[in-house]
Design a protein around this nucleic acid. Structure first.
Length: 103
DNA sequence: GGGCTGACACTTA
DNA sequence: CTAAGTGCCAGCC
């Protein structure tokens, strides 16, 4: 029962992200196999929340360090990340020390 | 099956 | 540096 769609791969990768770390939509898209599917990753997350998939979608941020969006509210996402140990830089996420690398 | 939408990324001004 | 526009992809109706 291998992954069927892009969506499945993205979720599996997102689940691998440990607390206190974050991955960019771009990184996820690349890890999933499509470096240009950054927008698709965001779309997928929007139609699938943590309650349904069990994926910590709040750990996914934009490539420029911006928190991006969240179906519960961007502020909620920032709060969760901060509690998990992610460092923030003037409202932006410190990717320099929290960017998770897939392998 | 086709068309619209969208939690992005990149380039140019 | 910021702002705006364009291009990309997958998912959903």
């Amino acid at each position: 029962m291998a992954a069927k769609s892009f969506r499945d791969r993205v979720f599996l990768l997102a689940k691998q992200i440990p607390a206190g770390k974050v991955a960019t939509y771009k990184s996820l898209a690349i890890a999933a196999g499509n470096p240009k599917a950054g927008r698709a990753v965001g779309t997928i997350m929007h139609y699938n929340d943590r309650k349904k998939t069990g994926v910590p979608c709040h750990r996914i941020v934009k490539s420029n360090g911006d928190p991006g969006g969240y179906l519960h509210g961007r502020k909620r996402k920032i709060s969760l990340l901060a509690k998990e140990g992610v460092f923030f830089r003037e409202g932006k996420i410190d990717l320099s020390g929290c960017m998770h690398t897939f392998r």
